[in-house]
Amino acid sequence: MEDLHYIFTKQKKVLFFLLALCVLGWAFTPYASIFAGIGLGAFFGTYNFWILVRRMDKFDRSVSEGRKASSLGTALRFGSGVAAVAIAMSLPEHFHLISTVIGLMLPYIFLVIERIVHLAKQH
């Protein structure tokens, strides 16, 4: 489980860098709504990943103590994704919908890339 916390710590660092790039893109390019959508989606995507890490901790403790394991918070993460899309749809002049959806998936894309790099370093 410490490995998941390490990955989440790296994800937060990447998120702050990505959000800084989104702010620069929002301020200095004509694609402000696209960068705002990516930032919004990445924020909610990282929140979803944080929920997953917390629920995995609870799940791991429950299994190790022999108790019944609780859910992994799928409904909460799904609701968070719906909230991000609802914000983008209700404010289309500020947030681009497709870039918001892409931003929602960025933490998971970073997770896959990080695992590929980790496996490549081991071999």
Rank of each mutant, 00 (worst) to 15 (best):
G25P: 02
V23F: 08
K10H: 14
I116F: 11
M56L: 11
V112K: 07
I7Q: 10
H5I: 03
L119I: 00
I34C: 04
V101Q: 06
F35T: 00
F44P: 08
H96A: 10
F78M: 01
G25L: 12
S33D: 15
L76H: 04
Q122F: 05
Q11N: 05
S64T: 14
E65Q: 11
G81T: 02
E93H: 08
L19A: 04
Y108D: 04
F78H: 11
E2P: 04
T46A: 09
F49K: 02
L104D: 13
R67T: 08
F49T: 01
A32Q: 14
A69I: 15
Y6E: 12
S70H: 13
V85T: 14
S80K: 10
T74S: 15
F95G: 08
Y6T: 10
Q11T: 01
A27Q: 03
G41P: 00
Y47Q: 06
L91H: 14
L111D: 02
V85Q: 05
K121L: 12
A88K: 11
L106E: 02
R115I: 00
E114Q: 09
F95S: 09
A83L: 14
K58C: 00
G37N: 12
A36C: 09
S90V: 13
K121N: 11
K58N: 03
Y108K: 02
K58A: 01
I98N: 13
H96S: 10
D60S: 04
S70L: 15
R61M: 09
I116S: 10
L40S: 06
L119Y: 14
A83D: 05
F110V: 07
